[in-house]
Design a protein around this nucleic acid. Structure first.
Lengths: 111, 111
DNA sequence: GTTATATTCAACTGTATGGTTGAACATGAT
DNA sequence: ATCATGTTCAACCATACAGTTGAATATAAC
């Protein structure tokens, strides 16, 4: 896993339309036109969003006849998930360590 | 938790400089000038990044004398973490359900 | 073959982003 | 009071982004 993978994944997830598309894809594969229907956006705009998601590895597109079927790829979330999990724990434990050091916690009064 | 919180958090995390700043803050609070030193960026650029992080709730800035001390706020990661955790599980289970339905798994051959 | 459908691509627009610089301001040090 | 330091702010620039439209392409249906 490399830096720019995270850049792409987090960037892809930062747009509500793209997150909605992902949610929709969780219900099963779908074509682009089918995906674009519920959005107040042009077909091309949704296709671009799919491009961003595909580039981030979150979605795969497979040509099937004249249409293109999109599927979700949960594995790509792992990079982001791992980053968050590690940092959340790391940061929290560092902060707790600092608290203990400084002795701001009331529990430390009788030590 | 609202939609635009996630937008801001994911967007804040999508930049490698900002993630590096967060990592640096995990080691303890720091002033902006101290944070900006290791980066090949102007002071103002780093200050802007801090602004983005603060706006996303990931960092707090407190004025102390003439300098401004930045601290990390791990709690803000929870929104993103929860979103990822839920969707990763949800997507994966949905995909497994579809697999079972279609019977593509070799385990289903003798049923 | 013609037509309709699904998609891509290119061109364009407006706005956001990430960066710069230099001026302004507040506070600490001398 | 003066000077140095830490920070913000405003102006500016280049590029990226999200959106549009219309033309081009590929495939299915008739």
């Amino acid at each position: 896993m490399v830096e720019h993978d995270l850049n792409r994944i987090f960037h892809a997830l930062s747009d509500p339309t793209r997150r909605a598309i992902l949610d929709r894809l969780a219900a099963g594969e779908a074509t682009i036109s089918h995906l674009s229907r519920p959005f107040p956006l042009s077909f091309a705009a949704v296709s671009k969003h799919l491009g961003v998601l595909e580039h981030a590895g979150l979605v795969t597109r497979e040509k099937r006849g004249r249409e293109r079927v999109c599927r979700i790829n949960p594995a790509a979330l792992e990079d982001a998930h791992n980053w968050l999990e590690f940092h959340e724990h790391f940061w929290t434990s560092r902060l707790e360590a600092l608290d203990t050091l400084v002795g701001t916690s009331p529990d430390n009064l009788d030590e």
